[in-house]
């Protein structure tokens, strides 16, 4: 019997609040399929997020979860992974949460290379606050009251920044290709180290033009590489609208050092004069 029949058992009774047509549904669905395929025990799985539309994700799983505060999904996930290395930890959120308010954590989580997966649902807009420009918004998008002339600012390049920061698994997925995304999520979970997936996930409400993405997104035109120079070159010539595994390397992960064990009583002795 196919494992995937169990996919829905990874879902909680809580129904997503996302707008109909939102790309995040496909991410939720792909994650449940990946968990089912890998036959992960629900109790050993934790999904952690910050704040935003996509950050509502954890409550929709029947696993453990943490819906924290804006921008801090990665530190919460990192703390959990450090304390409980045997758990499968998934951090998730949106482009504002991950690249703007949480940008510093993104860089350092990539550097630290803890064995966890970070999924950013990128729709180039702040949805929860009703449609403002995000770090990945194109400079000329002028549909927000907050930036009526557009941001005029170069968009953030998630994959390139992940690469420069030392992430050991970098992929781009598209919610319009759920099977391709599921495969990438499975590979990311299996990757020993920090795996980052930028999911192009359209916002039908504030960015209806993103419905066209399904005609624009193509397969990343290269085989995955472990050479950061090659990956960098490819990313700089890429339009950001291709999906696939871009870079995978076996960088060392942060590990707890092996040291001889003692007791707190021993530390007390150190104070004796």
């Amino acid at each position: 019997m196919t494992n995937l029949a169990k996919a829905k058992s990874y879902k909680s009774d809580i129904k997503p609040i996302w707008c109909p047509g939102c790309g995040d549904f496909a991410v939720l669905s792909a994650l449940t399929k990946a968990f089912a395929f890998l036959d992960l025990a629900k109790q050993d799985l934790a999904v952690i997020s910050g704040i935003g539309c996509s950050s509502r994700l954890p409550a929709y799983f029947s696993s453990y979860g943490f819906h924290g505060i804006h921008g801090r999904a990665l530190p919460i996930a990192s703390g959990l992974k450090l304390a409980r290395p045997e758990l499968t930890v998934i951090a998730s959120g949106g482009d504002g949460d991950g690249f703007s308010i949480g940008g510093n954590h993104f860089i350092h989580a990539c550097r630290r290379n803890l064995d966890m997966t970070y999924i950013v649902m990128d729709n180039e807009v702040y949805g929860m606050t009703k449609g403002q420009a995000s770090p990945t918004t194109q400079p000329d998008w002028a549909s927000s009251k907050l930036t009526p002339h557009g941001t005029g600012v170069r968009p953030f390049q998630p994959a390139a920044i992940a690469l420069a920061s030392g992430a050991s698994f970098i992929a781009r997925a598209f919610s319009g290709d759920p099977n391709g995304m599921t495969k990438l999520i499975i590979a990311a979970i299996q990757h020993p180290g920090f795996s980052f997936i930028q999911v192009l996930s359209p916002c039908p409400t504030f960015r209806p033009e993103q419905k066209l993405w399904k005609h624009q997104v193509e397969a990343f035109p290269h085989e995955p590489t472990d050479d950061p120079v090659k990956a960098a070159t490819r990313l700089y010539t890429d339009d950001g609208m291709s999906s696939g595994l871009i870079f995978q390397s076996n960088y060392p992960t942060w590990n707890k050092p092996e040291v001889a064990q003692t007791s707190v009583k021993q530390f007390e002795e150190e104070f004796v004069v």
Partner: peptide
């Protein structure tokens, strides 16, 4: 029955032939 995954197969559609894509469903459907 064997453990199969739909992404192991080549489809004419992004998912299985009878699966509705989320993107087709709008708020005002």
């Amino acid at each position: 029955l064997p453990n199969v995954a739909s992404w192991d197969f080549e489809w004419q559609s992004p998912e299985g032939p009878e699966t509705t894509a989320f993107e087709f469903v709008e708020y005002q459907i």
